[in-house]
Design a protein around this nucleic acid. Structure first.
Lengths: 200, 200
DNA sequence: GTCTATATTGAGATAGAC
DNA sequence: GTCTATCTCAATATAGAC
């Protein structure tokens, strides 16, 4: 029952992250000032430094948080696929997972892709390792499909990158109140991906 | 024979554009200062304002120049397709054109995609119109293929965006000295696209 | 056509009061 | 835990000499 009034640390921290993510997604990391972020949170600029040592770390924490969430969520889905699930089913599953996860957090996706340039080399390398880990999970599916003779692919590595680019591109134009409901969009994309990997 | 020594206007102008494109692609528009651009050109910052009224216009000119070049180059290719060329052939042609054009100018592609946020609303609208024009050319091909019964597509609009995202994604990882030669990469991508639009 | 110098503004980050 | 105040530095853009 301790820790009552006057202690906002557990609420301001997340608000700083949310405000930073929101503003950086819209204007870019370099274009957003600590003062702007503070204003959106409702505090003065100096107060932000209780929650991050500097602006660069704030950016990295956002991006690392996004990649951690991606890999964790993916692991929860992929866990059920141990063993006898057919490659085509696992491919559909991956496509749906990728679309859902990315459409649910467009700001984080945008920032994680656009602001890689603004990371220090070490921070960049850490995120690249996570991204590579994720991509590799799709490539494993493609390879198993090729091995089973169910997929017809010229190159699993390039096809992996091509599919992920295609799926992630969805985030640049998708609107919740758009022409088609999400489930139908998912079906269209699974169809496109199935076609791309089919034996011709 | 007039206009000799002391007149560098016709050379410094392009150098400013080239330096700006190069630096903005690497660090982002907001992160690059006019001083940095001037330094790369080999002049002082004040001199840049002989070639652009302000930083915003410099960015817009780069992006508009890229889109103009894209539409002009595309028109030169598409001109030969009046009439009896089969949809599948025109689709292959579009894929190869898109890949070649984009891989030849990675900096301009990167800037034109990443810095849309930093444009004024009017400048943004002007570029969006051009982008829409380009995308529409692919959609026309897809529609003609559907009409001829040669393509099996759930939705030409979404498929257009999906294909373009897939192709443009190539620019993020392609290296001239990479594992595969460009011609082979083009073949892989035409194969992927053919599969995606094929009747299943 | 480019320079130097400068006006003006705002950035990231820190110190110390409360 | 947040505030005010401030240090230090660098940004865009302009003016006027050469």
């Amino acid at each position: 029952m301790a820790r009552k009034t006057g202690s906002h640390g557990n609420i301001t921290g997340p608000k700083v992250q949310a405000a930073a993510l929101h503003l950086i997604a819209r204007h870019g990391f370099a274009a957003v000032s600590m003062r702007q972020i503070a204003h959106e949170v409702g505090v003065q600029a100096g107060a932000l430094y209780r929650y991050t040592p500097d602006k660069q770390t704030l950016l990295f924490d956002l991006m690392r948080g996004h990649m951690d969430a991606l890999l964790t969520a993916r692991a929860a889905v992929a866990r059920d696929d141990s063993g006898a699930v057919a490659p085509l089913i696992r491919l559909d599953e991956f496509v749906r997972f990728h679309i859902r996860f990315h459409l649910e957090r467009p700001d984080a996706v945008f920032v994680s892709y656009m602001e890689l340039r603004n990371l220090t080399p070490e921070n960049f390398a850490a995120l690249e390792a996570q991204r590579s880990d994720y991509e590799n999970q799709l490539e494993v599916i493609l390879r198993s499909g090729v091995a089973a003779g169910e997929f017809g692919l010229a190159d699993t590595k390039i096809t992996t990158l091509a599919i992920i680019a295609m799926l992630t591109g969805l985030t640049t134009w998708y609107r919740e109140d758009g022409r088609l409901p999400l489930m139908q969009i998912e079906q269209i994309y699974t169809g496109l991906v199935r076609g791309a990997v089919s034996v011709s």
